[in-house]
Simulated assay, not measured.
Amino acid sequence: MSGPAGVVETLRRSHYDIVVVQQAAPDVKLLRHIRNSRIPTPVMIVAQNMTPAAVADVLSVGADDCVLASADPRELLARLRAIVRRVSGHDSLTLHIGRLTVGIDRREVHIDDKLVPLTRREYDLFGLLALRKTQVLSKETVLDSLYAGESEPYGKVIDVMICKIRKKIRAFGIDEPFTTLWGIGYRLNEDAFAPLGSRMDSAEGRGVQAAKESCIPVMSGINILAPVAALDIA
């Protein structure tokens, strides 16, 4: 990045789940510039050396975590995921959304305590939408998250996976697990997973039937931005 201004401009142009800043020692300058620019993206500082005072300084300015570069990669990855999970409004490794339960650690999806038979990639996609249940995800964002560091397939593969997941979810009596915003992307349809009684009451109150979804391709987490130095946490 071309200095703090370049970092801020990049964050404004693209969506990232978390920013990873690698420094010799915790320094508040870049972080303060990010926060003064009203960029809400969570930030983790990874430093070669640190003192309690330096850690306190960056945390007070707006860092979400500060860890030593010598930290075990598994710990680092767990910390990154924990920050993203908390920012998304989840406080545990098990996400509960009405009848839906997503076990992040077990990589399993259940509806009414019954396992949904998803493939590895289908789980990755479904878990991403569940973790960001309030957000609309573009195909580009999903591709970056699912195939980071790999050769990305064509964007249509996301549409195909969405259709396959829909069919599997519909076997549990849920017709519209995803909301499609044409030309933008997909979002988890929380209302579809509401307990049966509450969903019926809500539908009667509105007096309007939800529009049917289609599997027509849309024409158009963890994304991690490491602005100061590359950081391999795989």
Rank of each mutant, 00 (worst) to 15 (best):
M1P: 03
S2M: 07
P4K: 08
P4T: 12
L11D: 10
D17P: 09
V20H: 01
I39A: 08
T51V: 08
V58N: 11
L59Y: 04
V61N: 13
G62V: 08
D64C: 07
V67C: 05
A71Y: 02
R74I: 06
E75H: 14
L77G: 12
L77Q: 14
R79M: 05
L80P: 10
R81P: 06
I83W: 00
D91E: 07
D91N: 10
S92F: 00
T94R: 13
T101Y: 00
G103E: 04
R107A: 14
H110Q: 12
D112K: 04
K114H: 03
L118A: 12
L118D: 09
E122N: 11
G127F: 00
G127M: 00
L128K: 04
K133I: 07
K133S: 14
Q135Y: 03
L137N: 03
L137Q: 11
T141P: 00
L143C: 13
L143D: 09
Y147W: 12
E150R: 15
S151N: 09
K156Q: 10
K156V: 13
I158S: 07
I158Y: 01
V160P: 02
K168R: 13
I169L: 02
R170K: 14
F172E: 02
F172G: 11
D175E: 12
L181Y: 15
L181M: 10
I184K: 15
Y186H: 14
Y186N: 10
N189F: 04
E190P: 04
D191Q: 09
D191I: 10
A194Q: 10
P195R: 06
S198A: 07
R199M: 06
S202T: 03
S202R: 12
G205A: 13
S214W: 00
S214M: 00
C215K: 05
I216Q: 13
N223Y: 02
L231P: 06
A234I: 07
